[in-house]
Design a binder for these strands. Sequence first.
DNA 1: GATGAATGAGTGTTCATTCAT
DNA 2: AATGAATGAACACTCATTCAT
Lengths: 196, 196, 196, 196
Amino acid sequence: MSPRTRDQIDEIRKQSRASIQSAALKLFAKQGFHNTSISEIAREASVSKGLIYNYFDSKEALLKSIIESAMNVGNQLIGRHLDSSQDPMQSLAEMLDEAFDMVEANPKYWKLIMSLSFHQDVMARFKDEIDQQQIKNIGLITGLLERANVEEPEKEAMLIAAMSDGILLHFIHIGPQYPLSEMRAYIKERMGMNRI
Amino acid sequence: MSPRTRDQIDEIRKQSRASIQSAALKLFAKQGFHNTSISEIAREASVSKGLIYNYFDSKEALLKSIIESAMNVGNQLIGRHLDSSQDPMQSLAEMLDEAFDMVEANPKYWKLIMSLSFHQDVMARFKDEIDQQQIKNIGLITGLLERANVEEPEKEAMLIAAMSDGILLHFIHIGPQYPLSEMRAYIKERMGMNRI
Amino acid sequence: MSPRTRDQIDEIRKQSRASIQSAALKLFAKQGFHNTSISEIAREASVSKGLIYNYFDSKEALLKSIIESAMNVGNQLIGRHLDSSQDPMQSLAEMLDEAFDMVEANPKYWKLIMSLSFHQDVMARFKDEIDQQQIKNIGLITGLLERANVEEPEKEAMLIAAMSDGILLHFIHIGPQYPLSEMRAYIKERMGMNRI
Amino acid sequence: MSPRTRDQIDEIRKQSRASIQSAALKLFAKQGFHNTSISEIAREASVSKGLIYNYFDSKEALLKSIIESAMNVGNQLIGRHLDSSQDPMQSLAEMLDEAFDMVEANPKYWKLIMSLSFHQDVMARFKDEIDQQQIKNIGLITGLLERANVEEPEKEAMLIAAMSDGILLHFIHIGPQYPLSEMRAYIKERMGMNRI
DNA sequence: GATGAATGAGTGTTCATTCAT
DNA sequence: AATGAATGAACACTCATTCAT
């Protein structure tokens, strides 16, 4: 008889929003952004087309909300290793481990994110933020390498970043038969991260 | 008024085909596949929409013909270094140089190709061929490294491949301010390609 | 917690209904019927969308209820001058004054009403009533003019009606810089309403 | 075998464009702009939805092209009487005749145009032009009245304009049973246009 | 070989309306 | 009485593709 309470409504909204995002992510990852229609997303989320627009201003806004989540995940990963007071090469190894784990756990998701990074129009808004992020990352790694007395720490940092992204790129394309674990171990050895 | 000869017709066909491909490539590279319409391609190629369908069965077929060209370029690059009888690390360095030069000369094109590599549907047909290619590449590099008595030649080969792709990935995203030449030099040094 | 009395409920209903009508009128007048959504009306009236349907069967029914009010206003204006026993030209002048005042006081509202008079579908139901009204008006004016011994009283009546509507039409379109007062004075003079 | 010539194409385009405009006009006039869908227009014009967009950028652009035609008609009507060297009241009478004839010949069309003049959004672009037009009209009539030594020529001009528009407004609403011819004659007599 | 008018299925988006609470 | 999440039909518009010339 009486209308729902604020809390009930908030809960409903949160769940609907999440289920739409999750359906969209799944489809975007499987078949790309442009080849996924709002109708499909609605069907996948067992929701009407119209409802999607209760929660997202547009198809693109929906995509952006997904990207934002991804970026938060990345930011937090980096953050977790910033204040470390342990051996720098150890920190580096841990960062690498975490990143590799993340991608291995959900390769389709990261394939989507990588794929989106080629969509000029979609990424324009995030470009700056991503660039900042990249610079921060390289800076952090450089710092670690300096503390570890590595020569040419900045180039080395960029190389490690490129190498990681290259490996993940290959893994994403080739799939489970790619020897991800071996490469992870090899990279650590080769770049001097497991001297101990 | 006299009918064109077979040869003239063939020549005309070849040129029309090429100018359509070139216009399409330019636009795909600039604004992506989905954001480029057949009308735009026709306009860019100074040709009617209908004519495009004389040469290509569909928009997607046109795209595939472009990808095929790209793959030929890649194949030939590899081929040029297969029979080399010179110092293996030198061969490797040359391959790297050539690949980097190629991407540096036309980054938008390779950005497009990389971006397309994420389109499952478009790439499905090429998947096998690309995989073969990759295996051949890795095999070749492994061979070179074996001849150069490098330890773990296969892992090293995969690492070099990943590293190269990673650097090119970063270059493609960041643009001209990425220190491509320095990284190229550094990678050679770091991976032992310029011992001489 | 005690249930509301019948009277309280009636009072609440009346007020809710009125505030919805008033919000709708304001928005319809500002931006037109088709460009005003139920959501906007609900927001403007600080009421939920659902509640509007407690009081009105549809958006169109809401509009019609507003038109009905407008027509009542018009009817009453006419009514106030029907039984007048004073000088007929004076009555005419007063009617004119009142009508002009009304429009001047709320031009957007009357613009809406005029605009709606072009919506065949909306007005169909009111057509007869309006026609009756018009005939009554013309009849009344004709009667006044007869009593004032004007020649061709019916044509003159129709001319006065047309002239008034024409002036109001121009005023509504042009806005405040239209010399409404002067025209009002001039029309009275020109049509012989201020002989005294 | 060979493609159509420029002339053939121009002819085709002209006809298609015209038939779309004519269908749109008919439907807009019958049921209003907002209540007419592109699909309906296409059906009425026996043409595909898509074709409409070959000729008009949007539904609104289609509407505007129709309004523009109407304004041209109006402008030309005025123009035909600007340089007249005959008796000014005679000119005025002719202008009136022509305008009345025009509306009588096609009342639905002019009903649409009048109705559109209430669509703030649609008319915004034409506001200035229309205002200029109105001022020019009033100016012209004022000039004629001055030459005819009428007192208060400007107010008289505005009154004549208002009166005409008012009569046409009534005619448009009431339809054929409105005594348009009588009113036209009466207005001329009443405003002193047939002294001769 | 070449043209471009024409098609129509498909898209993202809006919004009046319903109904469980 | 009141709420607002949810619906889905309808809309304007796009674009790959066809085909008469």
